[in-house]
Write a protein that binds this DNA or RNA. Structure first.
Length: 756
RNA sequence: GCCGAGGUGGCGGAAUUGGUAGACGCGCAGGACUUAAAAUCCUGUGGUGGCAACACCGUGUGGGUUCGAUUCCCACCUUCGGCACCA
């Protein structure tokens, strides 16, 4: 027997599996299972986090395959983003070249994982065909009024010189570069996600299995609140508590509110203008940081229709222009913020009856706002629209799609979209009137691309539509979607939104694209901190693979913690995994043709298989591996082991360590491939024959354990045996206990204390 | 402030619907093999006391329900994540 040397076997099998197409999805077969992992961004290299993210889904998919499912596990790359464009600026490489080079590197690295993902049939979001259908979808949205041109106070990243969606402003800063985000009035494209707000709200008991934190988080972000629109002499306010209108003692307008100028009295003009001016220069972050209430009076007064009193109108930036009507009625007696404001500025506070019934219109408001979708950058899908002076905005006809990116542009940020710098590309004839017109020089947000890529996966070869309806009908929804928690408010919400839109235009028939969502945690550096170059605690997967092989790395990543967990990488623990594989390798010495699987072993094996099957289904791969170790420990103690025992070990191992499992499978002369075998079954009879441990408690404290055979589990027998037990007798000290027995589980002997 | 998820050995973490707390792995200690070391193998490993048998304590804290609670209920402390002047 030679030594276990991963590098001698891993590449060999990877190539053979690939050549033999052993993981090929059979579109005609039933029993489909669609595993989806968020497509990686083409940043350059796979880091250990990528390995972690894929190790569990891959083991899970392999398990599903062994369980008889026809597994579809496709792959792709999210290619659009600023790093590509910035690399281009810094290193003078074209974004496309930079991106495609990274795709190549990452493809090669994915191969070393020995994953069953299909690397031949990938979606690359910057390819022409993806652009085409991306643009097609955009035009469909435009036709339905979902994509629209709007002007709004938007989040502006001064460094990236582009607009940001609300979901990508984190703590007042740009999600990508961390610059403090400014507010800027910009005309741009929006998607009317607000129209879908109600349908995106998760019901209490959803039909699909998504984590609560996602459901609650999304519902909060959508932030539905029902209330009323009330009129205060021309000022419309939104309130959720119309019943407190009698206690409204003043009105507050947001600084941007158009009525501010109109209402301000001559005496207050300078003060108000100064205040409004000041508020407009504040960034969102500054507004958030300083929660002290500020504001000024307009000098105007309006009638409170319920109390019949004239109440003053103020301007303050604690009222947000973007929410409700940008104006509120302040009820200091019922609202903390209004109270604080009233106290600070000496405004009256009056009791409310909570019984007011003002006249007004019912109104529902949402926290979520329409998704700003256009970016003033080069590296993205061009917005497929033409601006004609005569006809206005005209979509590019389908036959002219895709609108591709011109290779030559000046993409150094200058405040205007880079595409506007290429005249030849920009100028175009209007498809309607044939007159002179211009292309839209903006590109789509990268989150538009990733909102529907898993539909394209099922139709990478199709060029008549974004996807083949029938195939989607057959293969979707996705059965399980693995990804990161950071996409709770962005990507996964957008993906749900797109699915509902697709349903509306008759492309799909379901409401949710993924039946189950599982979110991974993070592998920290060995020092317990987040891995970062500056901290020098980054683990390079290529190095670890070189040292131990891919199987050890996969195994360790599956074993180190639950998929949802976050824990530090341990250079010591991973060597334990290597040791485990070496012990399995060595076990082949004990394999004997004559050896039979005895009853004890059968029972043990069944228990292991049963537990692993149960845990794998629940994606508890760490405990599944623990049971494989348990089985190995058991086999190691035997003098010789049967082929059945050994084969079971290899099949159980195969999802986690596919290469070594295959190699050993071949060594023992079994038919290729171990990955096309049947998952071992549980021998219920053997399990029933096994002896059972019955803990015996006296007054709830464990005093003895009886090892009993299955036919000795009746209450009378167990109690009798327990009472004969010395340790039990000692603690009973002659008393007559009342037995409480749960069959096959536990016996508790209770002595009723005399004082009771 | 609001919402969500957690708090179990030296560490990562187990514990099926309330039923032997600490599986499995790492680390550590002792032993075997070796001239020696590494590797490997064996044994032990929650805490306290005891030579030992054994006893008591023990799942963030304090109460409660129960024959029995890491698991259920109440209050509190605390860590992490999300949202945050949303009217």
């Amino acid at each position: 027997m030679n030594k276990y040397t991963p590098k001698d076997i891993e590449k060999k099998w990877q190539e053979k599996w690939h050549d033999d197409k052993i993981y090929a999805f059979d579109p005609s077969a039933k029993n489909k299972f669609y595993t989806l992992v968020e497509l990686p961004y083409t940043s350059g290299d796979l880091h250990v986090g990528h390995w972690f993210n894929w190790a569990t889904p891959d083991a899970y998919s392999r398990f599903k395959k062994l369980r008889g499912f026809n597994v579809f596990f496709p792959h792709g790359y999210d290619t659009i983003g600023l790093p590509a464009e910035n690399a281009a600026i810094q290193r003078k490489i074209h974004p496309k070249d930079w991106t495609m080079k990274n795709v190549e590197t990452m493809q090669a690295q994915f191969k070393t994982m020995g994953s069953m993902i299909d690397l031949d049939n990938i979606v690359i979001t910057c390819s022409d065909d993806y652009f085409k259908w991306n643009q097609w979808i955009f035009i469909k949205m435009f036709e339905r009024g979902i994509a629209y041109r709007g002007k709004a106070l938007s989040n502006w990243c001064p460094k990236d010189k582009t607009v940001l969606a609300d979901e990508h402003v984190e703590d007042g800063k740009c999600w990508r570069c961390g610059s403090v985000v400014e507010k800027k009035e910009v005309e741009q494209w929006f998607l009317k996600i607000t129209k879908y707000a109600d349908r995106l709200i998760w019901p209490e008991k959803p039909s699909v299995d998504w984590p609560v934190e996602v459901r609650v988080g999304q519902n909060q972000w959508i932030g539905k609140s029902e209330g009323m629109l009330l009129d205060f002499e021309g000022i419309e306010v939104f309130t959720t508590r119309p019943d407190t209108t009698d206690g409204a003692t003043f009105i507050v307008l947001a600084p941007e509110h158009p009525k501010v100028k109109e209402l301000t009295t001559a005496g207050q003009k300078n003060t108000v203008e100064e205040y409004v001016q000041k508020a407009s220069t504040k960034s969102e972050l500054q507004r958030k940081e300083n929660k002290d209430k500020t504001g000024v009076s307009t000098g105007a007064e309006v009638l409170n229709p319920v109390s019949g009193k004239k109440i003053p109108v103020w301007v303050a930036d604690y009222v947000l222009y973007g929410y409700g009507t940008g104006a509120i009625m302040a009820v200091p007696a019922a609202d903390e913020r209004d109270k604080e404001f009233a106290e600070k500025f000496g405004l009256p506070i009056e009791k409310t009856s909570f019984k007011a019934k003002p006249k007004g219109k019912k109104q529902v408001n949402y926290h979520i706002r329409d998704w700003s979708i256009s970016r003033q950058r080069y590296w993205g899908t061009p917005v497929p629209m033409i601006h004609c002076e005569k006809c206005g905005i005209v979509p590019v006809p389908e036959k002219d799609l895709p609108v591709t990116l011109p290779y030559e542009v000046d993409f150094t940020p200058k405040g205007k979209p880079p595409l506007a710098s290429n005249d030849e590309w920009l100028r175009v004839k209007c498809p309607k009137c044939g007159g002179n017109a211009q292309r839209d020089p903006e590109t789509l947000d990268t989150f538009f691309d990733s909102a529907w890529y898993y539909y394209r996966y099922v139709s990478t070869d199709y060029d008549k539509a974004p996807f083949v309806k029938d195939r989607v009908k057959k293969m979707m929804p996705v059965d399980i979607y693995f990804g990161g928690a950071e996409h709770t408010l962005g990507h996964t919400l957008y993906a749900r939104f797109f699915t509902k839109f697709f349903k509306d235009i008759g492309l799909v028939s379901f409401d949710e694209f993924a039946l189950k969502r599982v979110q991974h945690g993070i592998v920290l550096g060995p020092d317990g901190n987040k891995m970062s170059k500056s901290k020098g605690n980054v683990i390079n997967p290529d190095d670890v693979v070189k040292e131990y092989g891919a199987d050890t790395v996969r195994l360790y990543l599956n074993f180190m913690m639950p998929y949802e967990g976050t824990a530090p990488w341990s250079t010591e623990a991973i060597s334990g995994m290597f040791r485990f594989l070496q012990r399995i390798w060595k076990l082949q010495e004990k394999l004997s043709k004559q050896a039979k699987t005895d009853d004890e072993s059968k029972a043990r094996m069944s228990k292991v298989v049963r537990n692993i099957t149960r845990d794998m289904e629940q994606i508890k791969n760490n405990t599944s591996i623990a049971f494989i170790m348990d089985w190995l420990n058991f086999l190691s103690q035997k003098k010789e082991i049967s082929k059945e025992e050994y084969k079971t070990l290899l099949i159980l191992l195969a999802p986690f360590a596919p290469h070594i499992a295959e190699e050993l499978w071949q060594i023992i002369g079994e038919k290729y491939s171990v990955h096309q075998q049947k998952w071992p079954s549980v021998d219920e009879k053997a399990l029933q024959k096994q002896k059972v441990n019955i803990p015996v408690q006296v007054n709830g404290k464990l005093r003895a354990v009886l090892n009993l055979s299955a036919d000795n589990l009746k209450k009378d027998t167990v109690v009798k045996l327990a009472l004969e037990n010395e340790a039990v007798q000692k603690h009973l000290s002659g008393a007559k206990p009342e037995p409480i027995y749960v069959e096959g589980k536990v016996l508790n002997l209770v002595i009723k204390s005399s004082s009771k």
